[in-house]
């Protein structure tokens, strides 16, 4: 981070009085909602969250999240320090949406068309949110090609704004997951391999969040 970026960040934080908003971005189905739920279950202030809430709003059908959703504040305590973050779960970003794809998931034509329309609105909403955040967790499915335009666009926008970005290489519990491929596609950013579903390696992610968002 440059000196100027450091000053900008300091000012922003001074103005917001510790209200640091972190957006969870990524392509559809990468595991953004699962990760958001995992973070809230681990650190959420609302005591009513428990492990059974891990699957809230999660689905194997893409574009399940079609509205940006504030998941609430978390207070992460690590290495003697603590930081408070406001977590916002975003709709998946895409450059194409075809309602026919949802028919393969057993939706009726009417449901599929509705889902497609809402998904387009969700993408627009997620893009608009980029202006209102203090940092981003960019979630990628580690079994897939990381080098796609939506990932490049999110990275480019955060770089242009001088805002911190952590890449989460998710689904490392699956065979064929390759966090290394993600690291070599985006060598200039921290990459943390996790399984949001199984809760694997989450401490490493919290350490990175404390380091880059703190």
């Amino acid at each position: 981070m440059s000196f100027i970026d450091g000053i900008k960040r300091w000012f922003r934080r001074l103005l917001k009085k510790g209200n640091v908003k972190i957006g969870i971005y990524g392509p559809p189905n990468a595991g953004k909602t699962t990760l958001a739920n995992r973070i809230i279950v681990d650190w959420g202030a609302e005591a009513e969250w428990s492990v059974r809430d891990l699957l809230n709003g999660v689905s194997e059908i893409p574009h399940e999240t079609r509205r940006a959703k504030r998941k609430g504040k978390v207070k992460i305590k690590i290495n003697g320090g603590s930081l408070t973050l406001d977590i916002v779960d975003m709709p998946g970003l895409a450059t194409k949406i075809d309602f026919h794809d949802f028919l393969h998931h057993g939706l009726s034509e009417e449901e599929a068309r509705k889902r497609a329309k809402e998904a387009t609105e969700g993408v627009i909403e997620a893009i608009k949110w980029l202006n209102d955040l203090d940092g981003v967790l960019l979630v990628m499915d580690a079994t897939e090609n990381p080098f796609t335009q939506v990932n490049v666009t999110v990275v480019g926008n955060m770089e242009a704004r001088g805002l911190p970005l952590i890449i989460v290489a998710n689904k490392i519990d699956l065979p064929g997951a390759s966090p290394t491929r993600i690291k070599s596609a985006f060598p200039q950013h921290p990459v943390v391999p996790v399984s949001a579903l199984k809760g694997e390696n989450m401490e490493k992610l919290y350490e990175a969040m404390a380091k880059y968002f703190g």
Binding site: L93, A94, T95, K96, I97, D98, A116, K117, T120, E121, V123, I124, I127, K128, L130, Q149, V150, V152, T153, G156, N157, E159, A160
Partner: peptide
């Protein structure tokens, strides 16, 4: 530019919503 890329995605979504275009 990154900003233009974001606008392109946004405009693409608006046009998917109004026609037969799939992106």
């Amino acid at each position: 530019s990154p900003d233009e890329e974001a606008k392109l995605i946004e405009t693409t979504m608006l046009e998917i919503a109004t026609g037969d275009f799939t992106g």
